[in-house]
Design a protein around this nucleic acid. Structure first.
Length: 428
RNA sequence: GCCCCGAUAGUGUAGCGGCCUAUCAUACGGGCCUGUCGAGCCCGUGACACGGGUUCAAAUCCCGUUCGGGGCGCCA
């Protein structure tokens, strides 16, 4: 007897013997019959038991969400409306579920995100929740494929570091034997060093840590960053790589489009490339035409981004950011050093990627450190790599959870994180 | 770091000074009915976060504690 998933049942012939592993979602009993709504990772099926011919275990009161194994025969002409119907010959309880459940898996009551995260193992059994991570996985797979096809090497850089990436104070300190160390906020410096090493094109998918006490629906203290760096390239090359990577990811998701539509009611649209580009200055002018005076030297506020985002239906780039708003490693615009060869990828008011051409000249880089009030000596391990033929290069960092949020229209980034780390949560 | 807001049964809620020995739904337990189909009907168990205070009277008002939600800043 072969193991099947519920999804595989529909093509079978009458009376095919099958083995299924999954959970009891619900039982309904009648005088002559017992119906068990059975669920596995692919969908729902119904087990129909005739009391008069049943000699297996007592199934009337198997608690919901208990894990079971079922062997039986497939009924082509079943009357079930909750998926394919199986006539079991044997049911084995693999592990009984406690009762009552701390969280409704199939009830018509919705739990708070707090309750859901505390009981994530049950929450994820819900189809509309589980599918989010299927989508996230597909997105990443599509992006990985694109990077690989374009000659990128996947790398893994340290998450425990001795100095902060950008000199900020928003880092988690950790004990490292007798030294102080930090959880890295970004692989930036390491991927640049690798560019100098002749790898040519690198990408990394890994955690990034930010010790900011933010409390919003779009921030996490640990998130998954997709970072790339490409040699002999500028910001325009990086933007082309980015828009096509995002498109490749969404293309991968669209293969399971119907399921996403059914589970979440969301239409997955593959975006057209190239994405529109708008400069920072054009945004400022646009805001003033809308009666909003943007303050010099400041980033756009959420309100401002909402206004700017209304101009576009989907993804767009904001380019040529002022140097004061960008980190030291960002290449200044050769025509006006007050601006930079940089970009953000936006989706309406949401920022999902930040990127730029980087400074490759060691002298310029030293000066940029000083201009930002940083001590170049603290970064000597990084600066060394620039002294022996560092190629011009560019790259970006993309927040995977934010991309998932956008593709699925989620309201809270915690929905797109299996076990989120936020201002208050470090468990589970 | 700044500013708002919330905490009632397993879950989600009603209540906003006496009508609350606290509402409803769902879950859970029991019964009836039923090839069922978010089934239906009947009965039952189950809660005011904690500590002070105000008041004749507090789930309801005030203060503190704890836990949480959201906005801003910053960013992915």
């Amino acid at each position: 007897m072969r193991l099947f998933s519920v999804k595989e049942l529909s093509d079978l012939k009458e009376d095919t013997e099958v083995l299924l592993h999954g959970w009891v979602q619900e039982t309904r009993t009648t005088k002559n019959l017992i119906f068990v709504v059975f669920r596995d990772h692919t969908g729902l099926a119904q087990l129909t038991i005739r009391r008069d011919s049943w000699n297996g275990i007592e199934v009337d009161n198997i608690p919901r969400e208990s894990a079971i194994s079922v062997s039986g025969t497939f009924m082509v002409h079943g009357k079930s409306k909750t998926g394919p119907e199986i006539s079991p010959s044997k049911i084995t309880i693999l592990n009984i579920a406690g009762s009552p459940l701390p969280l409704a898996v199939s009830d018509p009551v919705n739990s708070d995100i707090e309750t859901r995260l505390n009981n994530r193992f049950l929450d994820l059994r819900k189809r509309e929740v589980g599918i989010i991570f299927r989508v996230e996985s597909d997105l990443l797979w599509g992006i990985r494929k694109h990077m690989s096809q374009n000659g990128f090497t996947e790398v893994h850089t340290p998450k425990i570091v001795g100095t902060s990436t950008e000199g900020g104070s928003d880092l988690f300190a950790v004990r490292y034997f007798e030294k102080e160390a930090f959880l890295n906020q970004s692989p930036q410096l390491y991927k640049e060093i690798l560019v100098s090493s002749g790898v040519n094109r690198v990408f990394e998918v890994g955690p990034a840590f930010r010790a900011e006490k933010h409390n919003t629906v779009r921030h996490l203290n640990e998130f998954t960053s997709i970072d790339i760096e490409m040699a002999f390239s500028d910001h325009n090359d990086a933007m082309v790589m980015l828009e096509n990577a995002v498109r490749s990811g969404i293309l991968e998701v669209s293969a399971g489009e119907r399921e996403v539509k059914e589970a979440l009611g969301v239409e997955v649209k593959v975006p057209e490339v190239p994405f529109p580009r708008i400069t920072f200055e054009e945004c400022v002018d646009y805001l003033s035409s809308k009666g909003m005076a943007h303050r010099d030297g400041e980033d756009f506020s959420p309100d401002e981004l909402r206004i700017i985002g209304e101009r576009f239906t989907g993804f767009y780039f904001i380019t040529r950011w002022p140097a004061s708003l960008r980190p030291f490693y960002t290449m200044p615009d050769p025509d006006d050093s007050n601006y930079t060869n940089s970009f953000d990828l936006q989706f309406r008011e949401n920022e999902i990627t930040s990127g730029a051409q980087r400074v490759h000249d060691p002298e310029m880089l030293r000066n940029r450190f000083l201009a930002k009030g940083l001590n170049p000596d603290d970064f000597s391990f990084y600066l060394e790599a620039f002294r022996y033929g560092m190629p011009p290069h560019a790259g970006w960092g993309l927040g995977l959870e934010r991309l998932t949020m956008i593709v699925l229209g989620l309201k809270n980034i915690r929905e797109a994180t299996v076990f989120p780390r936020d201002r208050n949560r470090i468990s589970p």
